[in-house]
């Protein structure tokens, strides 16, 4: 197929602070989050965000980690050897050759969320490409209760990708299109993505529009995630990280179901893991130099 398109990717980008001079900093700490779909690197200079990247994960973790950290350091003159401590996290965390330590993404997301959205955050939901994590944390961003679902594709970014592919709709448009319906349809009844696919095809055969199917799938996903969150107990304030945070089709429906609005910040929700990892790196760096 010549017109074969990848409907499920986000756009890549890198950023660094235009005014900060990293050469004046004492503590250069980095966090690298190698996820299943995207990888992020974030550099803290004396505990402040200096630079980050959000790129696609390649075919192997070491290359993706290098690409991410080089992306963050692009045009800054910084080199890998300048970083004093690096923490790896995410799916590929154990395969980052230049990292000093690997820390699970659950701990990193809680810590990152605490920095991004403040110490009042108690519930963190991270919907990644291949998993879904529900975390309860304290005022320091320390995990107090968590669950991670990486066994089943339903309720993960992958479930959404499968649906986007089936309907040939770019994933970034799903949220908006799912609200272009005359009335909110009942949710797709199958949890399993394989069965939901057949159900979606059946609904289309019976005359549903693509947007209706999207709406039904988004609300099924929101419902499923709210059940998962129920297990750890949802407490205000509530924060969503990961790619799904960018999908209003799920976020708004989930907020409605939970009766709580999620905290929005100026930060890109996808960097929470890398940010948390960098914060741990910064802490470990300070511990080590004490």
């Amino acid at each position: 197929m010549a017109e074969l398109q990848e409907f499920w990717r986000w756009t890549e980008y890198t950023w660094h602070h235009p005014e900060m001079d990293w050469r004046k900093g004492k503590r250069l700490a980095a966090g690298i989050d190698v996820g299943s779909v995207s990888s992020q690197a974030l550099i803290l200079v004396d505990g402040e965000i200096y630079a980050f990247s959000n790129l696609r994960t390649g075919s192997n973790s070491p290359d993706s980690a290098h690409k991410a950290v080089n992306g963050a350091m692009k045009d800054t003159g910084m080199e890998l050897s300048n970083l004093k401590y690096t923490v790896g996290t995410g799916y590929g965390r154990v395969n980052i050759p230049f990292a000093n330590r690997a820390i699970t993404e659950i701990a990193c997301h809680a810590r990152g969320a605490n920095f991004m959205a403040g110490p009042k955050i108690r519930t963190v939901l991270d919907m990644g490409g291949q998993d879904c994590k529900a975390i309860h944390c304290d005022e320091r961003g320390k995990v107090s209760n968590f669950l991670m679902n990486d066994k089943c594709a339903a309720g993960t970014g992958r479930g959404m990708e499968v649906m986007a592919d089936l309907l040939s709709i770019p994933i970034k448009d799903i949220g908006e299109l799912s609200y272009q319906v005359d009335q909110e349809p009942p949710p797709v009844s199958s949890t399993c993505v394989v069965f939901a696919k057949s159900e979606a095809l059946g609904l289309m055969r019976s005359g549903w529009s693509k947007n209706m199917v999207l709406a039904a799938y988004c609300s099924a996903m929101a419902h499923r995630v709210s059940l998962l969150l129920g297990r750890i107990g949802v407490e205000d304030q509530f924060f969503i990280t990961g790619g799904i945070a960018k999908n209003p089709g799920i976020v708004k429906r989930l907020e409605k179901e939970l009766g709580i609005e999620s905290v929005k910040t100026k930060y890109d929700s996808q960097i929470a893991g890398a940010l948390g990892a960098a914060l741990f790196a910064d802490t470990l760096l300070q511990k080590g130099t004490q």
């Binding site: 594709a153 479930g159 499968v162 394989v194």
Partner: peptide
């Protein structure tokens, strides 16, 4: 085979 889910 590590995956326990048909999609994965």
């Amino acid at each position: 085979m590590n995956a326990q889910c048909a999609v994965f």
